[in-house]
């Protein structure tokens, strides 16, 4: 397989060549690319999704809205757009644990979670999340009890999925900001549960 690997130097040159040709032909300015990178590298990320989940934990009406019209409820928090145009939020309960994957590529809700981690895009997770979700979650240290239904969501069309983890015990009276600190990226993919207050 090594023979197929292109040296990074050549890849870098290829990308530069494509960029300079497209700029020359007037498709975009180089600074527009800088701005795209800046937003996705520094402004989007799982803190956005955590705020959405925290608000839903704290506000029953918001939670209802989030579970019935996720796109609008998330936009109400100021998060919308590329790779989150059409959102679905699925709720973990004592009886159901949800896990999100994209087996065909790497579809992922950018406005609420940012860009996906490498493992989410790589073959082991995409291959196994559907056939052995419990085994995959065990690798992340999550052992879902046998009497809990595991629901895997293969997001292969244009809907993007966010898991709403269960609110941890011992968080009565927490502010939304304190609650958001307990919501990790992995808990919104479904390979983890929210942190307990003693863990932060």
């Amino acid at each position: 397989m090594g023979a197929h690997h292109e040296p990074p130097a050549e890849l870098s040159t290829r990308v530069k060549a494509i960029e300079s040709l497209l700029i020359e032909r007037g498709y975009f300015a180089a600074e527009a690319l800088d701005k795209i990178v800046q937003i996705h590298e520094h402004e989007l990320g799982p803190r956005n999704g955590a705020k959405v989940v925290a608000r839903a934990w704290a506000d029953q009406d918001y939670k209802k809205w989030l579970l019935t019209d996720a796109t609008a409820a998330i936009a109400d928090m100021g998060y919308s757009g590329a790779q989150g145009e059409d959102m679905v939020v699925v709720e973990n309960t004592p009886d159901v644990h949800n896990l999100v994957v994209c087996t065909l590529c790497s579809c992922y809700p950018w406005p609420t979670l940012g860009l996906p981690p490498t493992w989410y895009k790589a073959p082991p997770y995409r291959a196994r999340a559907v056939i052995d979700p419990r085994g995959v979650m065990k690798e992340f240290g999550l052992d879902v009890p046998e009497d809990v239904e595991v629901r895997v969501w293969d997001s292969n069309a244009e809907l993007r999925y966010l898991v709403m983890p269960m609110r941890p015990a011992g968080t009565e009276g927490f502010s939304e900001e304190e609650l958001a600190n307990l919501v990790t990226r992995d808990s919104m993919i479904g390979v983890a549960v929210a942190l307990s207050p003693s863990a932060v």
Binding site: L33, A127, F140
Partner: peptide, 30 residues
């Protein structure tokens, strides 16, 4: 890939960066 065997464990890297090379940023933006 759904359902295939043989790819091994998931191996998450908690310290990874979003981009490892500048060309990754540029192709992402393009």
């Amino acid at each position: 890939l759904g359902g295939m065997h043989g790819f091994g464990p998931v191996n998450p890297d908690p310290n990874e960066k979003l981009f490892n090379h500048e060309w990754e940023r540029r192709i992402f933006a393009m």
